[in-house]
Write a protein that binds this DNA or RNA. Structure first.
Length: 825
RNA sequence: GGGCGAGUGGCGGAAUGGUAUACGCGACGGACUUAAAAUCCGUUGGGAGUUAAUCCCGUGAGGGUUCGAGUCCCUCCUCGCCCACCA
């Protein structure tokens, strides 16, 4: 008998599968469609590590299962090539980004084929391919035309040596001069203002929030998105100010608690607030204020967080509370965010923790306007600081005509009053920000706009797309913070639509530009007339199951939804949501118990090693067996050895398969149908880990048999197929004695076997007997037994008689059919 | 500080409110071997009891609902992830 040789088994079949593309998805097939999507990797680094493979294996097993169940399955794969990871990798290795991604794509694809992934490679995409990013650029132009892509001056990370840096290139550096350093070479990094393209995602905030109700994401993902969008309802309230030159200035604040307006004892505004310049002019401490603004602009967000709140009073101006005309001081304060709400707040120290902290520091008055229920019962003669702060709702006091109202009632009444006097109204604000959409970098989609002599902007004509990157040797970020493209004169200098000299925009798009819509391109990847044909989109979209990184729950998933909604508004896609269902995958930890990562290759397992040593089937089965998809697991080589033994044992079972087709009455007939039923349910529920254990159990049973009926063996091979595609193909071809390869004969194009329901239930069942909640006996009875019959049987049971001397002892007898007998005595 | 999730053997984990610890790893004992590895067989939550029958305890802690709770509810503790001066 020949021994299981995983190499021999696995080298044989993948050539046939991929040369003939047996896993192809058929447009407009009459079968029901199933679009199963796993996030595309970005090809940087030498290999996809086992952590990636864990992310893909469960979706892939599911895709095979659905194919065998008669669905027309689309399970595509592609490469998110543009962006920083590839550029960094190229710099480190002294090659160009183009070379870096080409090398990585080749390796990654080979790796996935080695794993046997059932991917329709005819639909492979590469976001850095001009044929692809032509459409990314085209969509950007549409966004720009609709005013959703616009130029803004924004603070970005900047370093004297390296120029503009992305968030992920910047590390904390508590001892350094700026508190931040570049990941590369450790140069100090600070924030500088630069012109940036931004996407107006907040314009879609409300729809992004509401439409969460129409999709099937798990609650954690939805909550993550809701928090990210961060809708707050409250009011905008206008405070009047006269500056030292007696000009009237209005300061608008945002608050979620209009009911506390009588407790305002100061106003605080962001140092970046647009009215600041006017406000501080000719004030007594103008110089001090200007110094403060200068200092605050240099702070990183992290530093702002750690530091105590600071502020400087604008001496000489006061703000007037519109309801009680009380005049309060105005502070510049760095704890006020310029780009949230109105960039200004009303300070209510009695009822807001941050305001309280600030007021304490600067000796500002604390006026209580909401009764603190905790203080009610006590005589608060020793009014210590803790008791002064109360952030909950309650009954108003010290609030003129609004006294004794509850917070909710008072909010309504106060808003009504503010509206009457024209000093405020309801307002909604969101945490979600405009997203910076440009990078002063080489390796990205060029922004397809040009600047005319007169300073206006126009897009390059659609027929001239794609606008490709010039091939240059020196693609490093520049020290001045300009894009490396700035120096490529022959590329930058162009002509506008009237034939006048003009300059190209030299920014490129961020890493995540291409991944906003890639799932739509898989549907029609070769189309050069449009990004995807509407009829095909109608057939395939939306995505039925979307698997990806837990870290993408907010950013990527929101951006993609925004982008798709925009396409929907243009009438170019058939639905307003791209993904019907989403599950986030867990993490595989390396030998150092930290996440496997490209940046730490020494702790990341190359699947090539496990495929060489144990085979792709064992590797796949191991990854599926680890546990639930969304959990985190440590790498353990013994686990994969166990899966190798499983494959070997299955292979060795071949010799027991009898020539008899029929399994009727065979000892394992019922076990087979039960196993099949269990695994079918588990695969539907994506519980691949228990699916593998069902296979293990059944194999343990088969090993004990003298012979295995051929129909059960055939069914078992089909059950095995999604998990171990190579071995199952081998066994299937063998049992059928196929001489030559024919696509239709592949196990992977066979139907999923049917179980017979009657054979999954046993004639006899073991029923546990609980007496007063404690398990006292187990009896075997006919599964169809009646309550009266089982009562009789239970009373006769010796172990029960130990506790019950006569039937009268039984106060309550309960039989839950097929489950349990529960007796109360 | 906010949000979400999770706490079950030595370890990864299993369990529509119904026999807790399936399946796998590890460990221990045995077989084979000159020996080791590999392989095979057996044992494996804790305690009492004779290695038996049997009994007690046991799913982070404490309460509750229920005939019955790992599972549902309340309070608390711990850990993980995400967000974080968001007014």
């Amino acid at each position: 008998m020949d021994k299981y040789n995983h190499k021999k088994v696995e080298d044989n079949w993948k050539k046939h599968w991929f040369d003939n593309n047996i896993y192809k998805a058929v447009d407009f097939s009459p079968k029901p469609k199933k679009y199963i999507l796993a996030e595309l990797p970005y090809p940087s680094g030498k290999f996809l590590h086992l952590g990636h493979m864990m992310r893909y294996t469960v979706p892939e097993i599911y895709s095979r299962f659905m194919r065998m169940r008669g669905y027309n399955v689309l399970f595509p794969m592609g490469w998110d090539c543009f962006g920083l990871p590839a550029e960094t990798y190229a710099i480190k290795n002294g090659i160009t980004p183009q070379e870096a991604v080409a090398e990585a794509m080749t390796n990654f694809k080979a790796s996935m084929q080695d794993m046997g992934y059932a991917i329709d490679w005819a639909r492979e995409i590469d976001t850095s391919d001009p044929k692809y990013f032509k459409w990314t650029q085209w969509m950007f132009i549409e966004l720009w035309k609709k005013g959703l892509a616009k130029v803004k001056v924004m603070p970005v990370w900047w370093c004297k040596e390296l120029g503009v840096l992305a968030d992920e290139e910047v590390l904390p550096d508590p001892d350094g001069p700026t508190g931040k350093k570049a990941e590369r070479d450790g140069h100090p990094v600070e924030k500088r203002l630069f012109k940036q393209w931004v996407l107006d995602i907040p314009a879609y905030a409300d729809r992004l929030l509401k439409d969460l109700d129409t999709v099937d994401y798990n609650e954690a993902v939805k909550e993550g998105q809701r928090n990210w969008i961060g809708k707050s309802e409250g009011a905008k309230i206008i405070f009047r100010v006269k500056n030292v030159e007696e000009k009237e200035i209005q300061l608008e604040v945002f608050t979620t608690r209009p009911d506390t307006i009588f407790g305002v004892t100061f106003l605080a505004i962001s140092p970046q607030h647009p009215a600041v310049e006017l406000l501080i002019k000719n004030t007594k401490n103008e110089k001090q204020l200007k110094d403060y603004i200068e200092k605050a602009s240099g702070l990183s967000d992290l530093e702002k967080q750690k530091k105590d709140k600071t502020g400087v009073e604008i001496i000489g101006v006061l703000a007037e509370n519109p309801l009680n005309w009380r005049r309060v001081p105005i502070f510049l304060a760095d704890y006020i965010l310029a780009d949230y709400g109105t960039g200004a707040i009303m300070g209510v120290p009695a009822h807001d923790g941050r305001d309280y902290e600030f007021a304490t520091k600067y000796n500002l008055e604390v006026v209580e306007v909401i009764n603190n229920p905790k203080n009610n019962q006590e005589n608060n003669d020793n009014a210590d600081s803790e008791k002064l702060l109360y952030e909950g709702k309650g009954v108003l006091k010290n609030s003129d005509s609004f006294n004794n109202m509850g917070s909710d009632e008072a909010t309504k009444a106060i808003l009504q009053k503010l509206k009457e006097i024209g000093a405020g109204e309801e307002a909604v604000t969101y945490k979600i920000r405009e997203q910076i959409f440009s990078r002063q970098r080489y390796w990205g989609e060029p922004i397809p706009l040009i600047y005319k002599k007169d300073g206006t902007i126009e897009n390059i004509p659609i027929e001239q797309l794609p606008l490709e990157l010039p091939i240059i040797k020196d693609f490093y970020a520049t020290k001045e913070g300009e894009s490396p493209l700035e120096g490529v004169g022959e590329w930058v200098n162009t002509t506008d639509s009237q034939g006048n000299a003009a300059k190209r925009d030299t920014d490129t798009m961020p890493t995540w530009a291409g991944s906003n819509w890639y799932y739509a391109r898989y549907i029609d990847p070769k189309n050069d007339k449009e990004f995807a044909n509407m009829d095909k989109l109608k057939y395939w979209m939306p995505v039925d199951k979307y698997f990806g990184d837990a870290g993408h729950t907010t950013a990527h998933l929101i951006y993609a939804r925004f982008w798709y909604k925009f396409l929907f508004d243009l009438g170019l896609v058939p639905s307003s949501e791209p993904f019907n269902w989403r599950m986030s995958g867990g993490i595989l930890l390396g030998a150092d118990n930290r996440k496997m990562s490209k940046s730490r290759p020494e702790y990341s397992v190359d699947p090539k090693d496990t495929i060489d040593n144990y085979g792709a089937d064992a590797t796949r089965t191991f990854l599926a067996f680890l546990g639930p998809y969304s959990e985190t697991f440590p790498w353990n080589e013994n686990g994969i050895k166990a899966c190798y033994r499983l494959m070997r044992d299955i292979y060795n079972l071949r010799v027991k398969v009898s020539n008899d087709i029929g399994s009727k009455g065979h000892a394992i007939e019922k076990d087979y149908h039960k196993t099949l039923k269990n695994i079918t349910g588990m695969l539907e529920d994506l519980k691949m880990n228990t699916g593998v254990s069902e296979i293990m159990k059944f194999v343990n049973l088969l090993k004990k048999q003298k012979d295995i009926p051929q129909d059960i063996w055939r069914g078992f091979i089909a059950i095995l197929a999604p998990f171990a595609p190579f071995l199952s193909e081998q066994l299937w071809q063998e049992i059928n004695n196929y001489a030559d390869w024919i696509d239709e004969n592949s196990i992977h194009l066979q139907e999923w076997p049917q179980y017979i329901e009657e054979l999954t239930v046993d004639a006899m069942v073991n029923i546990p007997i609980q007496i007063n909640g404690k398990l006292r006996a187990v009896i075997a009875v006919k599964s169809e037994i009646s309550e009266a019959e089982i009562r009789e049987a239970v009373i006769l049971e010796d172990k029960v008689r130990k506790y019950i001397t006569s039937p009268e002892d039984i106060k309550n007898f309960r039989y839950v059919k097929g489950k349990v007998v529960s007796i109360t005595i």
